[in-house]
Write a protein that binds this DNA or RNA. Structure first.
Lengths: 238, 238
DNA sequence: CGTGAACTTGAGATTTCTCAAGCGGGGTGG
DNA sequence: CCACCCCGCTTGAGAAATCTCAAGTTCACG
C-alpha cells in the first residue's frame, strides 16, 4: 500500500522484501481528510505518525494574531510528523486537497527502527532532506527578493512533483492559491499577486486555479537562483 | 571527553555505561580551529562528522555574489554535520571563536547507531530539535519584524547557553557581531544596527564586543514573541 | 441569480535597503 | 612611543521593496 513511502525510504538504498513487508504492515488505517482539515493539530500529542498516501498537505505554525508561516508542502509518501515520535508537535499539518493519510503507531515504528536498520536509515535520510529544504527556504526568506523567492518555490515544487511522477511535462497540478504562497514565502498577498503578474509578464510561467505551467524552465531556474542539489533526489550519498 | 555531546544525547533518556563508552570512543582527534576557519566546507564530502567540543561556530550557505545566510549557531556538544553521514553537505560550518572539534568516522558512527539504539534515538532527537529551530527561524524571517526577530534570536541564545551552563546569570559571552546577526536574520547591517539601538533604548539589553546583557527578560521575551517550547530542552517527549 | 472565495487594482504608509561617509579602539610597523 | 590601519560600529539621506487598507472584479457553484 504505502508504495510511495517505501520508494522514499529506498532512496537511501534498497530494502529487502522483509523490510518492505515491515513498513507495509506498519502503516494502518488510511483516513480521508477534506481540504482544509487538520491532519495534525499544533501542540496536540498523538500516539502515531501520519503518512500522506494520496493528495497534498502543508505544515504551518500559526501565531496568536493570525499570522501564519507555511513551513513545507507535503506530497504522497511524506511523513507529516516524524517529530511526534520523540518531541511534542510544534506545528500543525493541514490538508491542501482532499487526501488520505495512514498512521504508524509510535511503538510499532520504534520496533521497526530497531529491527530494520535499512528502514531506519531511509527515514533518517528523509528527515535530513527535510532539513535541507528548510535551510533552502531560510536562504530564500533571508536573502532573496520576492521575485526570486516565488520562482524558487515553483522550481522546487516542479522538481519534486516530477520526481514523484506527479507532473505532466511542464504542467503541474498543485492546488495552492496566492494566500498559501504568501504564507509560505513570508509575503503579503497583495505583493505576491503583483510579483506573480511580473513572472507571467516575463513569460516564465502561467498559474491559474491551482495549475502551474512552466513556460521557460531555464528562465525560471535562473530567476529563482535554483539549484536542485539540496533536494538530494539522486539516490547516492555525498 | 565529549561529555557535552553525551549530555545532549541523554536528553532523550539515560544511556548505559556501555553506550557512553561507545560514544566516547567514537569521538576522535580533537582539532583546533581559529575564529573564521572553516570547520566543514560547503559542498565538500568528508569521511566523518564533526562534533564541537569547545568554542562556538555557525552554519551558513553562501551565494555566489556574497550574500550569506547563517542557518544556526553551534555550541559545545553540537554535531555540525550529521547531514554528511547520508547526504552531501549543502552548507558550511565556520568557527566563530577559536574552538576544538572532534570527529566521528562515518563507518564507526553507523556501527554505533546499529548497536546502541539509545544513542541512535538521542541523535535522532537532536536532529529533530535542530529542525524545530530551523522552523522557528523561518517563522521569524517570514512573519516577524526586525525588532522581534533580533529579540527572539537573543532569547534563543540566552536560553540555550543557560541550559548548557554557559551563561552567567543575565550575562552571556557570545562573540557574534552585527554582521553575523544580520546574516542570521536576513537583514542589512545598517538596519540591524538601528534596531539594536532601539532595543537598547527600550532598556531590553546591552550588547557590546560579544557580550550580551539582558536588562529586561520579560520585556525581551515579549518583544521577540519568544516561547522556548520549540527548543525542547526538557528531557520528556510529547 | 446570488454568494463567496480568490484574484486584482489603487494609493499611501512603512520597513528595510543601499550607498557613502565618519568614528573609535586595538594592533602593528617604524 | 607614535602614526597608521583595519575592523566593527554608527550616522545620514535617498531609494526600493514591501505592507496595509479599501474596494472592485471574476468565476465557479448552489
Amino acid at each position: 500500500m504505502p508504495s510511495r513511502l517505501i520508494a522514499n525510504i529506498e532512496t537511501s538504498g534498497p530494502l529487502s522484501a522483509d523490510d518492505r513487508r515491515a513498513v507495509a504492515s506498519l502503516v494502518r488505517g488510511a483516513r480521508r481528510f477534506q481540504a482544509g482539515d487538520d491532519i495534525v493539530t499544533e501542540g496536540q500529542a498523538q500516539p502515531h505518525c501520519r503518512v500522506l498516501l494520496t493528495g497534498y498537505a502543508f505544515r504551518h505554525k500559526t501565531l496568536e494574531d493570525g499570522r501564519r508561516q507555511i513551513l513545507s508542502f507535503h506530497i504522497p509518501g511524506d511523513v507529516c510528523d516524524a517529530q511526534g515520535l520523540l518531541l511534542s508537535m510544534d506545528y500543525g499539518v493541514t490538508a491542501l486537497t482532499g487526501c488520505e493519510a495512514g498512521f504508524m503507531p509510535h511503538a510499532d515504528l520504534e520496533a521497526v527502527l530497531m529491527r530494520h536498520p535499512r528502514v531506519a536509515r531511509g527515514l533518517r535520510r528523509m528527515t535530513l532532506v527535510e532539513g535541507a529544504i528548510f535551510r533552502e527556504w531560510m536562504v530564500g526568506m533571508g536573502r532573496r527578493t520576492a521575485y526570486a523567492r516565488i520562482a524558487h518555490l515553483f522550481c522546487e515544487l516542479v522538481v519534486r512533483l516530477r520526481a514523484a511522477g506527479l507532473a505532466q511535462g511542464d504542467r503541474v497540478r498543485f492546488p495552492i492559491n496566492q494566500t498559501h504562497l504568501s504564507d509560505a514565502l513570508g509575503l503579503s498577498v497583495v505583493h505576491t499577486n503583483r510579483v506573480m503578474q511580473a513572472l507571467r509578464r516575463d513569460g516564465l510561467l502561467s498559474f491559474r486555479s491551482g495549475e502551474l505551467i512552466v513556460r521557460d524552465w531555464p528562465g525560471l531556474q535562473q530567476a529563482g537562483e535554483f539549484d536542485p542539489g539540496y533536494l538530494h533526489l539522486t539516490a547516492s550519498s555525498s
